[in-house]
């Protein structure tokens, strides 16, 4: 098993953990923070898409639910940021469970599942942009109120380390699923639903639970995004770009591997920044880049970065 991912993952995570000592603030730290958020989003997608075999094209639905719920509760209802964050993660998990139950009960799979999830996210995006309470076309701005009690830190390293801890938790969660009965059932349903049912497994239930877990993690990424940037609008929360990042990170890094999403997020961020440096602020250039990347992976490295072998072994 000379797989890249298992070897490169832990040192990369350690290096990322130490990064704020070298770059206590500024561009590098902000980019690294975004990398961590993409990694969490990618881990979330990997649980459903990689381990569960259900390719969602609308993970923005869960991410946006996290970001908007916590923003709304704070801005419109004056909730404490930490309580709002917990509620938002809960809301994301519930939305995941509801979406999963709805879609899987109808027996939707494959590209139909991808299309329906995309539609859900788009509906949410349009709705959020249409109502004043959710900020309409402007978005929601959380008032600046520095202090640990309001989940806002004057030192940008603290939210970075919180995000880093969530990434670590995401890796451990993934490994935990891999080594559990639930993970075995998930793999069975992914590989062959009829055979799984014949062995006493209820596929709808397994996939719905999986979607809920995945959605909870995506909502966590959304919550962190909001607390770090204190702003969210429809496109940033529910836009297609979010869903594409979510799926591209693990596909690029290595599907159904615990470290794939982190590796993919790193590669994705580096490429996005390079393109940004060359093409400047050309609108939509990163989505175009993501499209090209996806085609290249599917053609040349379907196992992603983690699937690249160091040596040729049987």
């Amino acid at each position: 098993m000379t797989r890249w991912g298992a070897r490169a993952g832990p040192p990369l995570l350690l290096m990322l953990g130490a990064l704020p000592f070298a770059f206590p603030s500024g561009f590098v730290l902000t980019t690294a923070t975004l990398l961590l958020l993409t990694a969490i989003l990618g881990q979330s997608w990997n649980i459903l898409g990689g381990y569960g075999g259900q390719s969602s094209f609308g993970h923005a639905l869960f991410y946006g639910t996290g970001a908007f719920t916590t923003a709304l509760l704070q801005v419109r209802f004056g909730w404490n940021a930490w309580v709002a964050a917990a509620a938002a993660i809960g809301a994301g998990t519930l939305v995941g469970a509801a979406a999963g139950a709805l879609v899987f009960r109808q027996g939707l799979r494959g590209s139909y599942f991808a299309l329906v999830t995309l539609a859900f996210a788009e509906i949410a995006r349009v709705l959020v942009a249409s109502f004043d309470i959710t900020g309409g076309g402007f978005g929601l701005l959380v008032p600046l109120h520095r202090g640990a009690a309001s989940f806002q830190f004057s030192d940008p390293r603290l939210p970075y380390w919180i995000a880093w801890t969530v990434v670590l938790a995401g890796v451990l969660l993934t490994i935990g699923i891999e080594r559990s009965r639930f993970g075995a059932r998930l793999a069975a349903v992914r590989e062959n639903e009829d055979a799984a049912r014949a062995l006493g497994i209820a596929p709808v239930q397994v996939k719905t639970v999986c979607t809920a877990i995945s959605a909870g993690l995506a909502a966590t990424a959304g919550v962190l995004y909001l607390q770090i940037f204190l702003f969210i609008d429809a496109a940033n929360g529910f836009g297609v770009g979010v869903s594409v990042q979510a799926l591209l990170a693990p596909i690029l890094g290595g599907l159904a591997t615990p470290w794939g999403a982190l590796l993919g997020a790193l590669a994705l961020r580096l490429m996005a920044e390079m393109v940004h440096a060359v093409a400047g602020g050309l609108a939509g250039i990163d989505l175009a880049l993501f499209g090209v990347i996806l085609i290249l992976i599917l053609r040349f490295a379907p196992g992603g970065i983690a699937g690249i072998r160091l040596r040729r072994d049987a």
Partner: peptide
């Protein structure tokens, strides 16, 4: 109807 990409061990463990 094997779970094709899983090992024999993992198949039976299901």
């Amino acid at each position: 109807q094997p779970f094709g990409r899983l090992s024999v061990r993992d198949n039976i463990a299901v």
